[in-house]
């Protein structure tokens, strides 16, 4: 008779990853984000670190872990660019927290749910970035074309679905 290791539904739906995967996937996402636009400038619209933050947050189902994952990836992403260090950190911290909180309530293995989550969180990040730039930094020059942001959310969603499926293979659940 199989031994049951989970005591609650939440524990059953929590997913774990090996340290190698937890470290290398975010770094690979950052590297790809920095290198791919050199070869294909159009790919600059894809935010791979955001996709990774969403995936790890909804998989681990821990708001604290999601917050720290978002903060770490966002800060590292900021250091690559010429922006203030912390702009992406704040945005991705909020996204990580929200993704983990929502992930507790919905079936995150469903493809349609995943698509909706990615689309929504991509827009949420754009809104937070806009607020940070305009309110915290007082940058009146920062403008957002919401059509472009919708397009960005759509592209991110399209890219996220296959990446989520690939990352599902890296789970170490018993």
């Amino acid at each position: 008779m199989a031994k049951r290791r989970f005591t609650t539904r939440r524990e059953m739906e929590e997913h774990n990853f090996s340290p190698a995967v937890a470290l290398s996937v975010p770094l690979l996402a950052l590297f790809t984000t920095a290198y791919l636009p050199k070869l294909f400038p159009v790919t600059a619209i894809v935010d791979l670190p955001l996709i990774v933050v969403i995936y790890f947050s909804i998989s681990r189902r821990s708001a604290v872990a999601g917050t720290f994952t978002g903060a770490a990836l966002g800060l590292l992403q900021d250091t690559l660019s010429n922006q203030y260090i912390g702009v992406n950190g704040i945005a991705k911290s909020i996204v990580g927290y929200a993704a983990a909180s929502i992930g507790l309530k919905v079936d995150v293995d469903n493809t349609i749910t995943r698509a909706m989550l990615n689309f929504g969180f991509s827009l949420l990040q754009s809104a937070v970035l806009f607020a940070v730039q305009r309110v915290l930094l007082g940058s009146s020059l920062y403008r957002v074309s919401w059509v472009h942001e919708l397009l960005r959310a759509g592209v991110n969603t399209a890219v996220a679905i296959p990446i989520f499926l690939l990352l599902d293979l890296a789970r170490t659940d018993d």
Partner: peptide, 10 residues
């Protein structure tokens, strides 16, 4: 390489 993303032209 690039700075990553389309918000900073680095």
């Amino acid at each position: 390489g690039t700075g990553g993303g389309d918000r900073s032209h680095i």
